[in-house]
Design a protein around this nucleic acid. Sequence first.
RNA 1: GCGCCUUUAACUCAGCUGGAUAGAGUAACUGCCUUCUAAGCAGUAAGCCAUUGGUUCGAGUCCAAUAAGGCGCGCCA
Length: 597
Amino acid sequence: MTNMMETAQAQLRELLMQALGSLTAEGKIEAAPLPGFKIEVPADKSHGDFASNIAMASAKALHMAPRAIAELIVGAMSFDGTYFEKAEIAGPGFMNFFLRRSWFSDTVQAVIDDQDNYGKSEDGKGKKALVEFVSANPTGPMHVGNARGAALGDGIAALLEWTGWHTEREFYVNDAGNQIEKFGKSLSLRYMQLCSDKGQQALAANADDVEALAAAIYGEDGNHPDFPMPEDVYLGKDIIIHAANYYKEHTSDLAEVSEEDRRAALVGYALPLNIAGLERDLKSYRVVYDNWYRESALHADGSVDRIIDELTRRGFTYEQEGAIWFKAEQFGADKDFVLRRANGIPTYIVPDIAYHMDKLVTRNFDKAINVLGADHHGYVPRLKAALKALDVDTDRLDVVLMQMVMLFRNGQPAKLSKRSGKAIGLVTLLEDIPLDAARFFFNMREANSHFEFDLDLAVEKSSQNPVYNVQYAHARICSILRTLKEEGLYIEKPMSELPLGDTTQETELIRHIAAFPAEVSAAARAYDPSRVTKYALELSALFHKFYEACSVKNAETEELRASRIGICRAAVQTLRNAMAILKIDCPERMERKEAEA
RNA sequence: GCGCCUUUAACUCAGCUGGAUAGAGUAACUGCCUUCUAAGCAGUAAGCCAUUGGUUCGAGUCCAAUAAGGCGCGCCA
């Protein structure tokens, strides 16, 4: 819960306000309303730990030169009993402030004390957030975009948890509507193919191997000459496998029933298997949901129809060419859209509206966060328009749009898994690359950037692979502490009783450790786990520099050794916490790579 | 045609609400392991921040236009 960066900044702000107050009281500056000023962390550390532009920002209002103002302010400041030791005036009128050693020591100690809670905050205390992500079509396997969405949504949810929100992860199961119809039609066709003479031959030839059977029937692109498929059906092998498994269990008992009954039976058989498969695959990706919300429930309890009724009651609909339209343009959307088709069936967006009413009104989440592919961006204003028409504050719905993923191997776009030869989806991706690498890579870029995923790099067990850089830093720290313990050199003492080395490697590392809580908060506010990934990479790099410059074991004095042990403990804790947000393992040992010949 | 996103080093990308000499990794080149893990570190080289205007003390960052690329704009989801 500690945030030493914030503590120091608040203290500095207080010091500045006091100085301004006394200067005004003494009549040395006018009591003019001052424009907002900033306290920031300079990029160049020779400019101090904090810098303020207050002198420059207020130059106009005070009719004074920025440097003269800065000198007055600095002259009026007293740093006794604070974390600051001095101030300098630089450039056009920047004031640069320098922290005392005690701040660095206290920071290290605070991290050690906070342990697994270091970085947490209470920004969202008392508020509820629902993060909906992936929500893949249950009629087939997940694609690569779902893998990115899973890592992203799970990271966002973790960030909200870290910042004090009550957070739930939810998967919206589209188990109704057109795609289920199409699923049933596809299953039925494949089933009837198996019941045919040629199907029986294929079954006999592949009696024990459903995969081989599917391959035999599939043909080039799903359209085997002996088993042709019409347009507008799912062609995947998974459909054949479902049909074949059903056939094996129940033989041809569905061949004689009506098409409608056959579809219902096959969907009733295959859909639960698919949904269980999604749950299993996501779990293997370390994603566990609180809720699996069924679209069918919204149809069953009348919610979908009630949406249309309510919008109509409020006078926001009209009829045209037999369909019912929503006056979306009145509520900020680009154009009106259809709610109920001329054939009487609601369009896909109606259950979505009902679903979001359930999130924001019935279940009363303060925030609903949806992770969506960028190809859905046009749909967002429409959904919001409908919610607005139903008196929901649309600021409570935040949509994180995610750009497409391009997979590359050998510098070329890749479509198939190296190991299984199947199209690369979430599952096949994990056949090719380690789980940690997948979760790390998908959170390396912000959601809104087009993403080139380098499969070769993700597999690479070398310095080129960023995820290993971070894990290596962790293993290295563990190794240092382990060695010291084995050799009886390990000391734990309060940092306040120890000296602090004066190398830039030590202070830079501690500064970055101190920045962690603010980074977590900022990442949560921006719904951007990639900030945590970047933070972890920087932290690792700073630790490696510290390692090269500052020996712990061979520190000049025992006290300095103890101090550096403290820094190591704080660094490893921070690294571990960052990786915990991303759900990436931190091994305590890694094989040292053999030198290249 | 309209809307959204992107454009920074040879490659992949950082650059927080405008701030002091534009950063990192990879690739290239030099060094550093009998010393706490060399999956590391130190260093060299590499940029008209797509283009042009504007806003101000100050612009990679904000605004406008242009160009190139991606994605949307269904009684599909």
